[in-house]
């Protein structure tokens, strides 16, 4: 029987949640015996090759590309998990929701103290994706099955959740592993 697959992605996150996955340390070597990593930055596989048992999503959606990738994850994952505060509620990147996007771009590309921009042009080449007006949590874009809070969620939380989901057990994490910070 082939091993179950898992997939991970970082949208408008900082990769801290992925680093927390790696903080399971030596158990990562155990994990790669239990599952195949499908599409994931950890193994550099960029396209889904099959249906995955579990998908872990770090970060909310700040541009059209994030939305596209998140929808692709929903299509290819039986269980989709919002991993960490950015996926769950937008997190720190969603602080820009309090400010018009134009002002954020203006600060970065026109009025900052070391900006050199004689034309005053803001990056907008067709090769770079359109920014969304706001940063959206994952569950406002697709259905999300589980939420693991924390910034990032502790490695132990990720490990226990992942093992339970892969074994088809209900997610029943002890109180100490649910952290909000």
């Amino acid at each position: 029987m082939s091993k179950p697959a898992i997939a991970t992605t970082s949208l408008a996150g900082c990769f801290g949640c992925h680093m927390s996955i790696l903080d399971i340390d030596a158990r990562i070597l155990e994990l790669i015996d239990l599952v195949d990593f499908d599409k994931s930055p950890i193994d550099d596989i960029k396209r889904f090759s099959r249906t995955c048992k579990v998908g872990l999503v770090e970060g909310g959606c700040c541009n059209e590309e994030n939305v596209e990738v998140l929808r692709e994850f929903r299509r290819h994952c039986e269980i989709l998990v919002s991993l960490g505060d950015c996926a769950i509620m937008g997190g720190i990147p969603a602080m820009r929701n309090m400010v018009p996007l134009e002002e954020c771009l203006d600060e970065a590309y026109r009025s900052g103290p070391t900006v050199y921009n004689p034309s005053g042009e803001i990056p907008g080449d067709p090769e770079i994706p359109l920014l969304l007006n706001k940063v959206y949590p994952a569950h406002e874009v697709v259905k999300i099955d589980y939420h693991l809070p924390g910034c990032p969620p502790p490695a132990e939380t990720i490990w226990q959740a992942l093992v339970a989901l892969l074994e088809g057990r209900p997610l029943d994490l002890p109180y100490e592993l649910i952290k909000y910070d």
């Binding site: 541009n63 990147p93 602080m95 820009r96 400010v99 954020c104 600060e107 770079i128």
Partner: peptide, 11 residues
């Protein structure tokens, strides 16, 4: 091409 933008400086 670097395709993401956050806006920390402003927010």
């Amino acid at each position: 091409h670097i395709v993401e933008f956050r806006g920390f400086e402003r927010f």
